[in-house]
Design a protein around this nucleic acid. Structure first.
Lengths: 195, 195
DNA sequence: GACGATTGCTACGAAGCCGAAGTAATGTCC
DNA sequence: GGACATTACTTCGGCTTCGTAGCAATCGTC
């Protein structure tokens, strides 16, 4: 569902605010909770499309897709520089078949290597290469400057927004709330090999 | 970028909160604005995936995709029950080739008909059929009850969230701010043929 | 009213995504 | 230790998306 368009170059704004327009229609015909929920989904959809267009444009200029970039980044932050394909599938919530596809491509491009797991012959490890680190770092710097730092919200507003979305994700069981804090702390502690 | 998974049935939560985990990594290595912007994008992405999975599951049970449903809904709310393909492309920000594809499929399924524009021979109108109205209404009721009303946020929080995302979209020029209000008012005024 | 630019749509083809089925290794239970 | 279930990954095939190029109609300009 990643439609084209984009911010600078080749982008056309929609003629009006589709979120508010459809909110009016919904408020007239259905329950208030349905109208506000529809508005939330539509607003998230259009915000996602807006940002994803910009992100994908940056990725294309580095010969990546966002999915491949995401995998590279997690590989960079790992202390061993390696992750199992199943971990990638579970954490990034990418179906196994898609992970295979992504890893195939990253390997073709020599950004990672596939390595057999030392103790479990079923398992494959992806290991990032030097070239992979270079590409991921360059893409990150570009992304930070071109997209992330340019989002039109103040720091408190950004925090407010991510907090609201966190609550939405918790209520939708998007991640394991029980065990999350410990893992996040652990990720925060290590810092090897990034940047 | 519409990955699978889903809420009820075949869904597995991620092992931890990817947004907060990567925020820690970013805060350690890059500018604060890059970290908060990354968190905003990632939170929007994962919220979108969460909701879109549920939405697409509902759509599948009505033999629709969300894109096809969106077009049907806008056709329902139109006073003439018809829209030009170019209007659909601009408003929903779907590339022309994709609109052709969507309209092809809706026509195959007899949910819309293609009709020549009365005065401009270049232009094609999509007109919703009775069957199309039935399908769209059923899908909407299902969607309202199954997804939109179930989002885990209070009414004030929903408003706060859509307001923040509106500001993000305005700053990214997602829609024509100048002319939007007038159109939204006009959409709100008419109510023919919905529900 | 003629000609170049623009607009509206479609055909084609490449790429990404993912459900389902298949293969192989490991784990579990008695 | 044998049988069955589970886990990890890949292969296959179908679907959606969308960039590009093309065609036809219309508009703008002189």
């Amino acid at each position: 569902m990643a439609r084209s368009g984009g911010h600078r170059g080749g982008f056309e704004p929609a003629p009006f605010d589709v979120v508010e327009a459809s909110r009016r229609v919904w408020e007239r015909h259905w329950e208030p909770e349905a109208a506000s929920g529809m508005a939330v989904f539509t607003a998230i959809l259009r915000s996602y499309q807006l940002l994803a267009d910009e992100v994908e444009r940056v990725m294309r200029s580095h010969d990546l897709t966002f999915a491949r970039y995401e995998v590279l980044t997690w590989l960079m932050t790992d202390p061993e520089s390696s992750l199992t394909l199943s971990w990638i599938s579970k954490t990034l919530r990418i179906p196994p078949a898609t992970v295979t596809n992504i890893i195939d491509r990253l390997e073709q491009d020599k950004l990672i290597r596939r390595v057999a797991h030392p103790s479990d012959a079923r398992t494959t490890l992806a290991v990032i290469t030097t070239r992979g680190r270079r590409v991921a770092s360059a893409a990150t710097e570009d992304l930070n400057g071109t997209v992330y730092e340019q989002i039109g919200l103040s720091e408190p507003q950004r925090r407010e927004l991510t907090d609201l979305l966190a609550q939405l994700r918790v209520s939708g069981n998007e991640f394991d709330v029980e065990r999350s804090d410990a893992v996040v702390e652990e990720v925060g502690r290590r810092n090897k090999g990034v940047g």
